[in-house]
Design a protein around this nucleic acid. Structure first.
Lengths: 231, 231
DNA sequence: GTGGCGACGACATGCGGTGTCATCACCGTA
DNA sequence: TACGGTGATGACACCGCATGTCGTCGCCAC
């Protein structure tokens, strides 16, 4: 007894090839057509001519079909691990961002824009996207730690790296121009330097009396003053 | 016919009071005892003397029991909305961080530490935590936009704000000392300024020939050179 | 051949999360 | 005292996500 009906024809092997790619295509199509939350895995697999079980053999969960494949954290880790020990962190980050921008983003703007729209439409996809950013950040941090950078500095370098990449990426996607992403990254770096320079320097530490807070109204109350609240 | 058996006694009303608080306590206990992923909602509600359905009346999902209650984004939005228009962004951020640190974190270190341990033990909880951070970031960004700050600057100010808070928070939790969190925030700001000052200033723009990238080995290949990869 | 391997189908199961209706203490009102 | 509204909860049904397990069967090495 053949298993049900063979939907697909012209198979070279036992099954039609490229099951994973078919699932990706079917999923993105359905997400665009009817939204992420409302499309079910059976719908995806039906369109791809596969079973639900097979979907979860290729993707850990329904969201992962949109995130599979990027290895930017791996790339960052390799760049940091293999670069000459003499290079300073700032140069490493700027040139690493150049590499990432040119090899992972440049020329794929329309595709990335479509995916961003899908991701923004669903809270769980946003969360997954944030985890992706956190993964890159952690890779950068670990890379600098391995290079002997101090804990706090490594954490800040990682924060700066992902801030530059993601803020610039949003700029790059929002303005329809065709400027290279890396140029936007450099502009963002300049803007970050300018913005941070407006912060008061160290000397203003611990102004216990008459500090500027007095100019700000009190808003600390409102919610459960002494309850077992959270972090 | 009474519904099942009344597990609880000594009720004042029809049901034992504080259902929500009981659910929170039972959940945290079980998460600590046996981990987040392995405890089921029925286990939580059984310990609390309630039904599964009631759990989801109080919390949107199983993770939310650990995140309910913080209104830090609201606090940030209020601070930014009500502060005098003459205050510069840097002062607003520093004093806002002082308020948040002193009213939402100070004195709860042990409690926050326990929750951080639980959150770090589970990927989905980490995602939820990242969304919390993103929510604060977006509130800060929107607040500065309303104050007339330019898009890019507002985005960077928001990034700086949450970076300062979260990097300092990690420092504060990791070192067992009892320094005020806000002091750690100020130290982190100093460190951030120092770290960023090591980045080359604007003039190094577009060094197309012989730029430092030549010192970094090539790692761009490896994964699907031309495939329909992701962002 | 023939036996292992790997990809997939088929089936069963459990948990997460929601809609819907019934229940019943509490409270205000007359 | 009676009565009706309110609101929190229980009980039940239901769906989708995700996983474990086993069977099938082309492919490949030997």
């Amino acid at each position: 007894m053949t298993p049900h009906v063979i939907i697909y024809t012209r198979r070279v092997g036992r099954w039609r090839p490229d099951a994973r790619a078919r699932l990706e295509r079917a999923a993105v199509e359905l997400f665009v057509e009817q939204g992420f939350a409302t499309t079910t895995v059976p719908q995806i697999t039906a369109r791809a001519g596969l079973t639900t079980r097979t979907f979860f053999r290729h993707f850990a969960d329904k969201r992962e079909v949109l995130f599979a494949g990027d290895e930017i954290p791996d790339l960052a880790a390799r760049l940091l691990a293999d670069a000459p020990a003499t290079l300073d962190p700032a140069t490493l980050i700027v040139e690493g961002l150049r590499t990432v921008a040119e090899t992972r983003f440049e020329g794929r703007r329309a595709q990335i824009l479509q995916k961003r729209d899908i991701v923004r439409s669903d809270a769980s996809l946003c969360e997954r996207d944030l985890r992706k950013r956190a993964g890159l950040q952690e890779a950068v941090r670990a890379g600098f730690l391995s290079r002997g950078v101090a804990d706090l500095t490594a954490a800040l370098l990682a924060e700066i790296s992902v801030t530059l990449l993601y803020v610039a990426l949003d700029e790059w996607l929002d303005q329809d121009g065709d400027r290279p992403l890396f140029e936007v990254v450099l502009d963002t770096l300049d803007a970050l330097r300018t913005t941070l320079s407006s912060f008061p320097p160290g000397p203003q530490r611990r102004p216990r009396a008459g500090h500027p807070q007095d100019a700000i109204a009190d808003h600390t109350g409102s919610a459960r003053p002494a309850g077992p609240s959270n972090a």
